[in-house]
């Protein structure tokens, strides 16, 4: 299940859905990303998130397929918000269930790392009076490459 949406989401609901992935599931790993007060700029009060509709969903589907080739993935739920977000708002959710914790942890982390460097989303940081399109970080690229 992949969703790109403006509205907020409830991680508890997603967790409940992941628990229904069948009796072979023995582990669920989830990640939630939040808007924080400092990124490229300090004193961030909010974000604006833009995406490429259609391509975004396609890229994330590909990442889930790739994760399923590498690890035991019984189900995966990914939600990414777009539009205007305030400080401490939820941005992204990745939840994966597997038979064992190792696969659940790895698949969840892989999807999140690869999403950051390949899914067409762009963040703009908003402070009191300035706006700034966030620059891609070499550390994020390194993390994605570490899965090759």
């Amino acid at each position: 299940m992949i969703r790109v949406q403006q509205q907020d989401f409830d991680p508890a609901e997603e967790y409940r859905a992941l628990r229904n992935s069948g009796s072979g599931t023995g582990a669920i790993a989830t990640f939630t990303g939040l808007v924080r007060d400092s990124g490229d700029l300090s004193g961030v009060t909010g974000l604006f998130l833009e995406h490429y509709p259609g391509m975004t969903e396609q890229v994330i589907e590909g990442l889930v397929l790739e994760a399923s080739r590498r690890w035991d993935v019984r189900d995966a739920r990914i939600i990414h918000r777009v539009g205007s977000l305030a400080l401490a708002d939820q941005i992204v959710f990745v939840g994966v269930c597997s038979a064992h914790r190792g696969d659940a942890f790895a698949a969840c982390e892989f999807i999140m790392d690869a999403l950051k460097t390949s899914a067409p989303f762009w963040k703009k940081e908003i402070t009191g009076d300035t706006e700034h399109w966030v620059e891609q970080k070499a550390a994020d690229l390194d993390r994605t490459q570490s899965w090759d």
Binding site: Y52, M55, V92, L115, P120, W122, W133, D140
Partner: peptide, 10 residues
Amino acid sequence: VAFFPPVTGG
């Protein structure tokens, strides 16, 4: 065709 800056989601 789409042209865009390096992506920064997540």
